[in-house]
Amino acid sequence: MVQQVMVQQVGAVTSEDGAGRAKGRSSLMRSPQFSSFVILIVLLAVFALADGNFLSPLNISNMMAFLPELGIIALGMTLLLTAGEFDLSVGAVFALAPVVVMLLVQNAGIDIGVALLAGLLLCIVIGAINGVIVTKIGISSFLVTLSMLLIVRGAALYITQGFPLKSWDQPGFFVTLLAGSFNIGAFRFYTSLWWFIGLSLLAVYVLRYAKLGNWISAIGSNRNAAVARGVPADAVKIWLFILTSVLAGLAGMISAFRISAASPVAGTGYELEVIAMVVVGGTALTGGRGTILGTIVGALMLRAIRNGIVLVGVPGLAYNIFVGVIILAMLILHALLQKNAARS
């Protein structure tokens, strides 16, 4: 079902891109999100053939439970990368936000709603600091957000003394909102899937159809040109850093509520996993070219790989070899397609 929807979406958007029908089709074939999509289908088919349980309701439900948590962060990261920056602190923010919320609730007796708001505010502050330092002082986002990763992760470890906290598990509005679940037939889905779908649609709209999306692509493509046309490049970047941080915090809270635990080491390594999802989908690491549909494909792909290689019996310690090889293969494919497009 998901696959059919993807085919239609990729088709619809790309033909809108091209001038005529025929041209639309050829640019569809060459677009990076399309090649990623084809590879996703191949991977799914291989895993499905290799292990009958891969497409079982239980396994699909499992994949769909994890998918939104990294996927939501990947949406923000796609916009940020398109504007020419990235954020290595998302994994740490993923851990710190729920940890702070739970400490406020459990140690300070603050209402859960207020605590969630405070957590959100913390993410906004972290994103704003990243953005202001990168744009106003002019230090590369690699260095700024790497430092922020250490600060935020360190803070999460220090305030918890390294121990995971029991998360809020009393049923109520916020638990339903962030980590409620429902059944469709034999499938069990979490509300986080709705968050992911809703935010994805918003992101597609912003990047492809809104004035802001035009600015984001222009800034990443040629910042000076955008500024010369009166585009507020610094402000746009700062807001994108804030957005990415907030989405990372949101994903962290969703995860903590789902598993009823807030761990200071949660989300370790997520920053690279998320960036991998984004670039595998066809977004350029150098900015200017971003695709949300590609990121959704990339998120599905990495999720399917991680899940599938367990099922087909690859030894646990060898996972990352496979993940790395597949990512590298995808990037080579995109690079070759890009070269071809430039030549024609």
């Binding site: 035009n214 692509s217 222009a218 990443g220 040629n222 000076n224 040109a225 955008a226 350029a284 200017g288």
Partner: peptide, 10 residues
């Protein structure tokens, strides 16, 4: 401007 004033990816 002397340096390109267009965004190549647009």
């Amino acid at each position: 401007h002397q340096d390109t004033s267009l965004a190549p990816d647009l």
